[in-house]
Structures are given as structure tokens and as C-alpha cells.
């Protein structure tokens, strides 16, 4: 461990992993919310064309990729918003055009072969330069500030665009902002995770977090935790096992997701067998419904014909009538 951290390139790789692990899930959650889980993948394809142009012209591949991804992000969002019947096909043309152009352009470069692109596609820990790190740091700061400022507006637009518009929120600018955030995230990740796999780091930690969290906010904390753990852990394993960092990071994230899903299914099964659903009744309990209300841990029970009903999901659970409650017993069951 110590010798790994003593290496300059590993220090840079860990720092880059920390940055991308933290921001990718923050941007990804809105893509999950809007059912656009694959859009980051397409932007990665276009960013790759930017990389190829950078290699060919001898300029920085990071800047060229950033410009390509940002342009693609805006165009893609405008096509989506237009709702044109051929919009989906237009997106496919842009995305595959990007990856096709990158392969052709790179082969025109005296220094490059299509093989040169592998490191950009799948991530490589040895490639993070000091100047990359400065750019990534600045871009990460930009993403964090934008996220902090816009997160609830992005949440509102993603959860109910029609309502957001009626409330006077600037829906199109917010959607463009999210597209730009996605493009920037793609670029920040291009060294460590790779342009073909970045979408996974935006999405998979959120998939796991949706299982573990109980609110949008708490799920975000889980997602960032899992993102950082996967990215930093993946870089470490990548060094030790001599594997491409991107693939290692994503497999680690998927492992987290599977552990979360299996664990929660087992706990859910145990709880279900332990909880008793109240008789069906055509009455909605609520404040002032006429039944005595008893605050109970994180919910309120209602005394109905001498027994206690606890709201659970869309129905009510039965509390044992002479049940004395110990703190944190949580017999309302399931996730709430």
C-alpha cells in the first residue's frame, strides 16, 4: 500500500478517482430519474472523436474532448426536446458518428493507431498527467457548485416537467445545464474510467443507492459513497492486479449493487414474514380522521376498533393490541 502511494502516477490516479467517484453519481442521479441512463454512453462516443482530434493535432485531448462532449450535449438535448419522431435515430447517428470518426481520425495521425484509443475507452491509471489533474479539479469544482445550486430544480424538472413549467421554472435551460454537467463528467472520467464505461459510474452507484436510501437526499449520500469506494478501490485493485482501471471500477460498483440488492431482498423477506397486515378497510387514516392517533417512532398509529393500525406502504399493518414498544423495534416493517 505504502509503495503504491509513493508513486507519483498512483497519487494522481487516486486523486482523479476521488474526483470522478464523487461527481459521477451526483450527475447520474438525474439521468436515472429522467430514464436517460444511456445518454452518458453516447456522449462518451462523441468525446472520443474529440480525443482523436486532439491526438491528431497534437493539442490536449482533454480540452478537445470537452468541446466535443459539450456540443454533443446541447445538440442531443435540443433534439430530445423537439420531440421529433426521428429524434431517436438522430441521436444514434450522432453517437455512432462520433465513435466512427474517432477511429478514422486517429488512424490518420502519425503517432496514433486505433489501439491508442484503448486507454481512453477503458481507462488507464498511468495516463493521468499533472495538468489533467488541474483541469479535472477545476471541472469537478464546477460540477459541485452547479449541483449545489440547481439540485432541487433539476429534481423538480426530472420528476414532473409539466408541473415545473407551470411553476415558471426555466425547464429548457435546466435540461441544458444537466446535459452540460453530463458532458463535463464524461470528460473528467476519461482517464481513469474510460469513455466507454463512464456511464456505468454515473448510473450503477445510484442503482445501489436506490436500494439503500430512504429519500432522494439519503440515496445521494449512498451513491457518492459507493462511487468513491468503487473508483478509489478500483484504482488500487487495478494497480495490484494489473487490470484496466475502468473495468475494475465498474465491476466493483456492480458488486456493490448486487450486494445491496441481495441484502435488501433477504431483509425484506424476513420482515414480511414478521408483519401482519390489517384487515382491508375502506377508510383512510389521517390526522383528524376520528380515530385516536398515537405517534410511534417514525410514524403514527391509529386505534381502530381497539387495535392499532400502522400505515405501511399503501396499506395498514396490525400492531399487537397489548404490544409494548421498545425503541427502534421497527415492526412497521419493510422500507419506509
Amino acid at each position: 500500500m505504502a509503495d503504491m502511494l509513493a508513486l507519483d502516477f498512483m497519487q494522481r490516479a487516486f486523486l482523479a478517482a476521488l474526483l470522478v467517484g464523487a461527481v459521477a453519481p451526483l450527475v447520474g442521479v438525474f439521468l436515472v430519474q429522467r430514464r436517460l441512463a444511456l445518454i452518458g454512453d453516447g456522449m462518451g462516443h462523441v468525446a472520443l472523436a474529440g480525443v482523436a482530434v486532439g491526438v491528431l493535432t497534437g493539442s490536449s485531448p482533454v480540452w478537445a474532448a470537452l468541446i466535443a462532449a459539450l456540443v454533443a450535449a446541447v445538440v442531443v438535448e435540443l433534439i430530445r426536446t423537439s420531440g421529433h419522431s426521428q429524434g431517436d435515430v438522430a441521436l444514434a447517428i450522432i453517437f455512432y458518428g462520433g465513435i466512427a470518426a474517432s477511429v478514422v481520425i486517429i488512424s490518420a495521425s502519425p503517432k496514433g493507431t486505433p489501439g491508442t484509443l484503448t486507454a481512453y475507452l477503458f481507462g488507464a491509471i498511468t495516463t493521468v498527467t499533472q495538468s489533467d489533474l488541474w483541469i479535472f479539479g477545476a471541472l469537478t469544482a464546477l460540477i459541485l457548485v452547479t449541483f449545489a445550486l440547481l439540485r432541487w430544480r433539476l429534481f423538480a424538472v426530472a420528476s414532473d416537467e409539466e408541473y415545473a413549467r407551470s411553476a415558471g421554472l426555466p425547464v429548457l435551460p435546466l435540461n441544458l445545464a444537466l446535459a452540460a454537467l453530463t458532458a463535463v463528467t464524461v470528460v473528467v472520467s476519461m482517464r481513469i474510467v474510460g469513455l466507454l464505461l463512464i456511464s456505468a459510474l454515473m448510473i450503477v452507484p445510484n442503482a445501489a443507492a436506490q436500494v439503500l436510501g430512504r429519500s432522494f437526499r439519503s440515496a445521494l449520500f449512498w451513491a457518492v459513497g459507493i462511487g468513491v469506494l468503487s473508483a478509489v478501490g478500483g484504482v488500487g485493485i487495478s494497480y495490484a492486479a494489473n487490470t484496466p482501471s475502468g473495468g475494475t471500477i465498474v465491476l466493483l460498483a456492480i458488486g456493490c449493487y448486487l450486494a445491496a440488492a441481495v441484502g435488501s431482498a433477504l431483509i425484506g423477506r424476513a420482515r414480511r414474514s414478521a408483519h401482519l397486515e390489517a384487515e382491508k378497510h375502506g377508510h383512510e387514516h389521517g390526522p383528524g380522521c376520528g380515530h385516536e392517533a398515537i405517534p410511534h417512532d417514525d410514524h403514527v398509529d391509529y386505534v381502530h376498533d381497539g387495535h392499532r393500525h400502522a400505515p405501511h406502504l399503501g396499506h395498514y399493518d396490525e400492531h399487537d393490541p397489548d404490544h409494548v414498544h421498545a425503541a427502534g423495534e421497527g415492526d412497521s416493517g419493510g422500507r419506509r
Partner: peptide
């Protein structure tokens, strides 16, 4: 329905 894709209280 409200968005079921992500958790929201």
C-alpha cells in the same frame, strides 16, 4: 403515479 425511478419522500 409519481416518479418511481428514484426515491423521493
Amino acid at each position: 403515479t409519481l416518479s418511481g425511478t428514484v426515491r423521493a419522500t
